[in-house]
């Protein structure tokens, strides 16, 4: 297992997961036409990503269907119980930064929702709360993104 394999495997899982999620979304909301169509379109992107990942894996002599090295499987999950098995502290850090980033992303979306309901219900206090907090959430996301960008070349290339 090296950094490239780890990234390919994790992305393969993630894109397959997202393909499924988007396809389900499209399927469930046939009556929501925009959702239905756009989600289906976006699902094909992820499908294509999986195909390309597979081709790339083949060029690296990797079969993404063989089970992953158990030590590294923890990297792809958000389940904390398996973390102790991650063999590299740098990887653990990348994984944690990713989870923080995703959590911040959820918050960001929720701030967006709050701001929208505040506007719809003419609640200016609530809107100003969201206007104050949401930019900070975006700064949190930028920070995790910057840290992942800066650290991952060394951590993954050294695996």
């Amino acid at each position: 297992m090296n950094g490239v394999e780890l990234a390919l495997r994790t992305l393969d899982q993630g894109e397959r997961h997202l393909t499924g999620e988007l396809a389900d979304l499209a399927e469930r909301y046939r009556a929501e036409h925009e959702i239905h169509h756009v989600a289906a379109d976006l699902a094909t992107w992820s499908e294509e990503h999986v195909e390309r990942l597979r081709e790339a894996a083949a060029r690296h002599d990797l079969d993404l269907d063989t089970p992953q090295d158990a030590h590294f499987a923890a990297f792809g999950t958000s389940h904390p119980a398996t973390l102790a098995t991650l063999p590299d502290p740098g990887l653990l850090l990348l994984r944690d930064l990713r989870e923080v980033h995703l959590a911040a992303t959820r918050n960001s979306l929720h701030w967006e929702m709050l701001a929208q309901v505040a506007q719809a219900s003419k609640d200016t206090a609530l809107l100003s709360l969201a206007s104050f907090c949401h930019p900070r959430t975006l700064r949190q996301m930028r920070w995790t993104n910057t840290m992942i960008k800066n650290l991952s070349p060394q951590v993954l290339a050294a695996l």
Partner: peptide, 9 residues
């Protein structure tokens, strides 16, 4: 950069 977090623009 963000002067507080160091996040890159």
């Amino acid at each position: 950069k963000d002067l507080v977090t160091g996040a890159a623009d």
